[in-house]
């Protein structure tokens, strides 16, 4: 893993087509911009973590004996 220090206005270039720019620092918040090709997925780390956590919740054993009552449920169009 690479760790480096940047100043406001400085950039990090990743590969040929990703540029990360530090635009500002305010207290413990850092504002950055990421320039990357459209097909590169970028999300905040906590979104991925939240989805993994929700999947774990979803996989926890639950009582689905009443699911049969809902099988005909549909949105009214």
């Amino acid at each position: 893993m690479l760790a480096l220090t940047r100043k406001v206005g400085e950039r990090i270039v990743i590969g040929d087509d990703i540029v990360v720019t530090i635009v500002g620092v305010k207290g413990d918040s850092i504002r950055i911009t990421v320039d990357a090709p459209k097909e590169v997925k970028i999300y905040r780390g906590e979104i991925y973590d939240a989805i993994a956590a929700e999947n774990k919740q979803a996989a926890a054993p639950s009582d689905l004996s009443e699911l049969d009552n809902l099988k005909g449920l549909r949105l009214k169009k």
């Binding site: 979803a58 009582d63 689905l64």
Partner: peptide
């Protein structure tokens, strides 16, 4: 993906 905690 659905999450069921108590009631379905």
């Amino acid at each position: 993906i659905a999450t069921v905690k108590e009631k379905v």
